[in-house]
Amino acid sequence: MAATCFLFVAMGTGLVTGPLSLSPSAVALELLSKVPLLHVRSPLSPTDALVVWQLRLPEVVLGALVGAVLAVSGAAYQGVFLNPLADPYLLGVASGAGLGATVAIVSGSGTSSPFSLLPAAAFVGGVLAVAATFVLSRSRQGRSNASLLLAGVAVAAFFTAAQTFLQQQHSGLDLQVIYTWILGSVSTAGWSQVLLLLPYACLSCGTLLAGRRLLDTMSLGEEEAASVGLSVRHARAVVIVAATLGTAGAVAVSGLIGFVGIIVPHAVRLLAGPSYRRIVPLSLLYGAGFLVLADVLARSVLSPQVLPLGVVTAFLGAPFFLVVLRRSQRVG
C-alpha cells in the first residue's frame, strides 16, 4: 500500500517537473480533460498539452517500467545466485547490449537514422551475451552458479573489448552518441519506446512475480529443492530467461542504469524481510518509483541541463550500497 502510494507520488512529481513551469493543478486538469464524460476544460496551451502527453507522461511511464524491470530482475538474480551483490547485468547483458548499440551507431552513422536500429541491436546483443554466458558456463560437472558467474565475467570482458575496439576505430561524433547511451536516460519522444519495452516488461515482471516462490524454494539448495519438487537448474533457466528479456529490453530503450537492481531489492529486504514472496512485488513498485524520482532529479538539478540517469542512480546508489554492505558484514 505504502509502495503503491510512493509510486503514484513519484509519477505525479515527474509529471509536474520540467523546464517549462506548468502548475500541478493545470497538469491534473489537462489529464482529466482527456477522460470522457468528465467535461473538464484544460487550461494548458496546445504546445504545453503536447509536452504533458508526448514528453512527460511517456517519460514517467518509461522510467517506471525500466525501474520496475531492473529492480525485479535484480531481486531475481540475487535469489538465483544466492548472492546479495548480484545485479541484472551480472551475466553480460550490459556489455552485449553495449556492443549491439555501438555496432548500430557505427554502421548507421551517415545514414538518415543512425538511432532507429539502436534498441533492436542493443536488445539482440544483450540476449546473445547472456546466451553465450549460459553455453560457456557448462563444464563437465554440469553448470554451477560459480561457473555461470565466471563465464559472465569472461563474456562481459570480451564484449566490452569488442565495443571499445569499435569505438576507437570510429571516433568522432559516434562517440558522443554511444557515451550518451551508456550513461542511461529515460528521455523519450512519444510512446514508441514505451510500447517497445512494454511486452518484455510484462513478460519479465509477470513471470518473476508469479515465480517468486521459485526463488524462495531455490534457497534450499539444489538437492532439497529437488526433494520438494523443484529442479533448480530448470528454475534457474526460467528466471534467467525472464530477467534477461526484461533487462535487455530496458537496456535497449534506456541504456545502462546501474545500481537500481541492487539498491532497491536490498532496501525492500530491510523493510519487508527476506522472503521473495514480498521482495519481488515490493521491488517492482519501489523500483518504478525510485527511477521516476531519480529521473526528476536528473532533469531538475542542473536544469535545463539533464544529468545522465546512470550518474544519478549511481550517486544515490553507491553510498547506500556501502551501508548495506557494512550491515551485512556486521550480521554475517
Binding site: R213, T217, S219, L220, V228, L230, G273, P274, S275
Partner: peptide, 13 residues
C-alpha cells in the same frame, strides 16, 4: 533469514 512459516510453506511446492 527465512521465517519458519515461509520455510514450511516451501513443502507445498
Amino acid at each position: 533469514t527465512m521465517r519458519v512459516a515461509d520455510y514450511v510453506l516451501l513443502g507445498r511446492f
